[in-house]
């Protein structure tokens, strides 16, 4: 689903994070919350709620930092 967006699109990153949490919820047997997180991912891809102007970027600490 998130592959519909370019790899560097911020909404793709957000959607991937939602999907990751959806998998975590499923692994914990929390299926309502799994569906909620999957719906948020879908919404993020559909509505592209995170589009930044040129030059602005989201800074997230990497594990090796």
């Amino acid at each position: 689903m998130t592959a519909q967006l370019p790899p560097d699109h911020l909404s793709r990153y957000f959607a991937d994070r939602h999907l990751h949490q959806a998998m975590v919820e499923a692994g914990n047997g929390e299926f309502d919350e799994c569906l909620e997180m999957a719906a948020r991912a879908s919404q993020e891809v559909r509505e592209r709620r995170h589009e930044l102007p040129p030059g602005e970027r989201l800074r997230v600490l990497r594990a090796d930092e």
């Binding site: 975590v24 692994g27 914990n28 047997g29 929390e30 997230v60 594990a63 930092e65």
Partner: peptide
């Protein structure tokens, strides 16, 4: 923390937490 069950060893953080060595 929730009841139920879990498949992750909670002496470790999830990769998504971006913590060094975890």
């Amino acid at each position: 923390n929730h009841g139920g069950s879990g498949n992750r060893d909670c002496r470790f953080s999830d990769t998504s937490a971006n913590l060094p060595g975890q």
